[in-house]
Amino acid sequence: MSKSVLLKSSIAKKYWMAFTGLFLCLFLVGHLIGNLQLFAGGEEGRRAFNEYAYFMQHNPLIKVMSYVTYLSILFHAIDGILLAFQNKKARPIQYAMDNAASNSSSASRKMAILGSIILIFIATHMVNFWAKMHFGGLQLHTTTKTVNMPIGQNPQTGEYVNEDIEVSYILSIKGEYLDHKYKNPKTGETQERYDIKHETMVYDKSSKLKVSEGYKDLHTAVMTFFGKDAQGQKKNQYALIAILFYTLSMAVLSFHLLHGFAAAFQTLGLRHPRYTPLIKMFGIIFAIVVPALFALIPLYIFIS
């Protein structure tokens, strides 16, 4: 098998499009299942999501899969652009009158444009969340709780006095809550027990030893990005624009999948009178349900 056949032949290029495209469909399912956790509210939901994000960043198998995903996106995009340029060149003079709508769907004829919009969306989306997760810009996952604590003995009456004190806890990756910060009711000063280095590494202030590791608070970043005040952080003032862009991008993805899913099977030669109608039907359901659920998440966050 020569290199030219594997990379240069029109049909082989299409195999690559189909393989990477179907793999990216699998990625969409995985990504969606993870993201659906954002529908769960409260501290429980936040904790589950941040634990999941940590798992996704550290599990070796997921790490390998993520590199395959990056490569697939790049390959699908570059191969697609190459094919689109070749296709443009194959018809130098356009028809004065072209009734293409009578014989094919507009999505099938506009795959390159739809794909380009999706690529722009992926880049934006990665800057919004992925880059913060990987290169910094997120807070540590902390939670506050009001605790009724004894603060001392009344010297006159000899009574022990309790007071409500707000304590900030760090959730460690071992699942324990470490009491970190509290406001001294007498002096009014905030006292901290730990030093935080590299965003999530927890060091004891007195012993200078590393005690544990915390979680990055991706959940709060998502909440504020889509227009919700959370954990004392201000919401994104351009949240409406972000939601509009995300929803439109998902609509574009839907059209891309509406043609792409079944087309990938055709390209791989997987066509059969019994199974092709099923693949087509599944493709339509997939193309509608997956982007719709993705699009619902920002809307839900904004409204709730």
Binding site: I11, K14, N103, S104, S108, R109, A263, Q266, G269, L270
Partner: peptide
């Protein structure tokens, strides 16, 4: 210098002899 197939299916619709897309899958 022909272009690449994007499975639009227009060819099979316009073909005067109604050649089916089954053939393209077979060639693939």
């Amino acid at each position: 210098g022909f272009g690449n197939c994007t499975n639009t299916g227009a060819c099979a619709v316009e073909c005067p002899k109604e050649i089916s897309l089954d053939n393209i899958a077979r060639m693939n």
